[in-house]
Design a protein around this nucleic acid. Structure first.
Lengths: 184, 184
DNA sequence: CTGGGCATGTAACTCGTTACATGATTAG
DNA sequence: CTAATCATGTAACGAGTTACATGCCCAG
């Protein structure tokens, strides 16, 4: 009864959360310090799976405790390079076979629109204009990066292509909104 | 030094988080129990600003402590209707004037695609097919609801229209992906 | 050799999720 | 009357965010 997972036997069913799994995934590229993992996560997953530095460090500590990564000898400062272990690779392989869950979107902008009647039109339109501009820039940015990586990193390119379609949809919506507000 | 916010003077700059603000926003429609707020949040904000029951209850407690809502007399069971106060209205009005921040998207699907090379093609395609189907259904659903509310609830309709554009973009991406995988 | 920014990591806090408890209401 | 489901709420946990500490490196 007590000690149902007391330490003996390989933990068959350890459940990795998605953030931990991402860290493991990135470590497939070779040993890295927490800082580097965080940076890679930011550029690669960027806007579709946000991971902060602190999370990375926490997960690395957890993963080490589980034996899924090992820390190499600390270099300058505390700089510890972590490397994925074989169990780590196994755990990741198991994780990535689960069917992916539903997307989570959290949009302050849509929240604002939903409560739009509580906001005077001037404010509303100003906010919309700002956001629209921002999304236009974001779209350009995605297109630029996509061009750069399209040949070398096909998986990243797929993600970026999603980003492009998504941003286009957002802009389409802005256009539609303006058309709506017009007639009066 | 001690007690920088010790209790005297109106808390000019109390910072409402977005979830608390949503609760206040919904309470503009009239007094409601936590359950009702949660239900409204789910149908209205639904997929673009997720709010769970527990959060609602917690925020209601906080808001009451701050004097932004008041609880009426408990009815059957613990059923407590909460009503927004004048300070509540003020706080909400202040909140909704802040410029909305960036969207947060957290997509297990894109995570999977990003790590796609670690997954065998069979799995990958199966997952994509499942998700695609799901998004097709979701789009239909949004269109249906949009039709229902388009006349009575313009703000909700705007949100739903966004949902439709978004889902269309997702489907566009799926189509593009298949086209990509094809040639070999 | 010093001051500012970058690299590296930890700690504390807030928020979101999951699990649970229990009274009402309805179907059979 | 009893079982199932719905309504209502609390508690505990896990994940995400913000704030901080401190060593390294380079420009002046």
């Amino acid at each position: 009864m007590s000690g149902e997972r007391g330490g003996l036997g390989p933990p068959q069913t350890l459940k990795l959360n998605a953030t931990a799994a991402s860290v493991l995934g990135l470590l497939h590229r070779g040993p890295m310090t927490g800082w580097d993992v965080a940076r890679l996560a930011e550029v690669g997953l960027g806007d579709f799976w946000n991971v902060t530095q602190s999370q990375v460090y926490r997960e690395l500590r957890n993963l080490e405790a589980l034996g899924l990564v090992v820390a190499g000898p600390a270099g300058r400062r505390d700089k510890k390079p972590y490397a994925i272990t074989d169990s780590g690779r196994d755990a990741f392989a198991v994780w990535i076979r689960r069917e992916p869950g539903a997307d989570l979107i959290r949009s302050p902008l849509l929240l604002m629109v939903f409560f739009g009647s509580h906001l005077d039109p001037a404010h509303r339109q100003r906010f919309l204009a700002i956001q629209r501009l921002r999304h236009e820039q974001t779209l350009d940015e995605y297109r630029r990066i996509l061009d750069q990586v399209v040949h070398d990193e096909p998986d990243l390119a797929k993600v970026l292509q999603f980003a492009v379609f998504h941003e286009q949809a957002v802009l389409q919506w802005f256009a539609w909104l303006e058309h709506e507000e017009r007639p009066g």
